[in-house]
């Protein structure tokens, strides 16, 4: 019994029961399939997270994002005063996270690719693009650069899903994707 020492002192030479051997082989094969799915998707899949990142000071990132917003601003988001920014397709796009907003609002074109730069000016935040449900962690002092290609149009929410204090639940941004 499992709560007593093994009945036979030399337990490691006992033969293994057949159903156990079959199950171990099946489980091992499945484990290897799951393992190789990840490199396989890097080769063939369209959704792989970029590993491009830089160290950056929050004020430097804020300055770059403000310059970007000023250059391509096309309007404001309702009464909020947050600029709506329409960058050229294929270009660099900046979005910063701070207590408690995503800034600015972006307007992108469906089917085009953009280099999105993400960083935080204070604490950690979570970039959750909804309803796509793409979730990326945003750190202060690190600038992450990833290429995004919207494949659907409409209005997308950017909800913060990393706890960032008492106003966390009000931290929502927007991305519009036009046809």
């Amino acid at each position: 019994m499992s709560i007593f020492p093994p009945q036979k002192r030399i337990w490691w030479n006992e033969p293994v029961e057949k159903s156990e051997i079959i199950w171990i082989v099946i489980a091992l094969v499945w484990a290897l399939i799951m393992f190789f799915m990840m490199p396989y998707w890097h080769l063939t899949g369209d959704q792989n997270l970029s590993t491009e990142a830089y160290r950056i000071k929050p004020d430097v990132f804020a300055a770059r994002t403000e310059a970007f917003a000023e250059k391509f601003k096309v309007g404001e988001e309702g009464e909020t005063g947050i600029p709506v920014v329409r960058p050229p397709a294929g270009g660099d796009v900046y979005m910063l996270a701070r207590l408690w907003e995503w800034w600015p609002v972006l307007e992108l074109k469906k089917g085009e690719s953009y280099r999105l730069h993400l960083s935080s000016l204070d604490w950690q935040h979570g970039f959750s693009l909804l309803p796509e449900n793409i979730n990326i962690q945003v750190h202060p002092d690190y600038e992450m650069v990833l290429t995004i290609t919207p494949n659907s149009s409409g209005e997308f929410g950017v909800v913060c899903n990393e706890f960032c204090g008492i106003g966390h639940h009000t931290m929502v941004g927007k991305i519009y994707v036009k046809e």
């Binding site: 947050i82 909804l130 929410g157 639940h169 009000t170 931290m171 929502v172």
Partner: peptide
């Protein structure tokens, strides 16, 4: 799977400037 964030007080965003 519908994207509801964990550790979040108000999924209705009732006092947020921008909502989802």
């Amino acid at each position: 799977t519908l994207g509801v964030p964990r550790r979040h007080w108000d999924m209705a965003f009732s006092d947020a400037a921008i909502t989802h």
